[in-house]
Amino acid sequence: MIWMGAILFITTTTWIGFEWSNRLANRPKHIRQVKNALQILEAEMMYSHLPLQEAFYTIQKQTPFPIHAFFDRLYKNMNYESKDFQVVWEKSLDAFMDISCLGKNEQEILRQFGQTLGKHDFLQQQKHIQLAASHLERELEAANEQYQRYGKMTKSLGILCGVFVVLLLL
């Protein structure tokens, strides 16, 4: 009976450890996705002259989960959920934060970026996209470094914690 409990406990902590490390691994991946999406947005704005909603539709078609879900929600809710674009953007961003592994910094970058979207002429708009992209680049480096440093450790930390507690209690 005791052994059963011990094994269950260790499995749980191992799983938590893996999940943690997964998040660390996914964060740079998701930041890269956001950056790619911004690049598509820039192209659609500059070269195809698409209005935002149609641009969101194209991005949504070209991107993988979870960033796909973000733009899909934006596309579907513009002019529907609220006539105020800011509201739709923030709500979509909140929903996106729940399903992605992005951190607080990325959220803030995207939030501020949303405030500029569709309110400027080509040149300004392009600058804002590039600004957001370079902010994200910085976060990407930080996220990569964090993964390098803690990625493997968190994985083993899970098991070790489990084993440690089990040994203490036995």
Binding site: L52, F85, G118
Partner: peptide, 20 residues
């Protein structure tokens, strides 16, 4: 005003270059 202009431009002021 921001609201009206967003509605006028379909939330995409960058497309309004000529109109502006």
């Amino acid at each position: 005003f921001t609201h009206i202009i967003q509605q006028l431009s379909d939330y995409s002021l960058y497309r309004m270059e000529e109109e502006l």
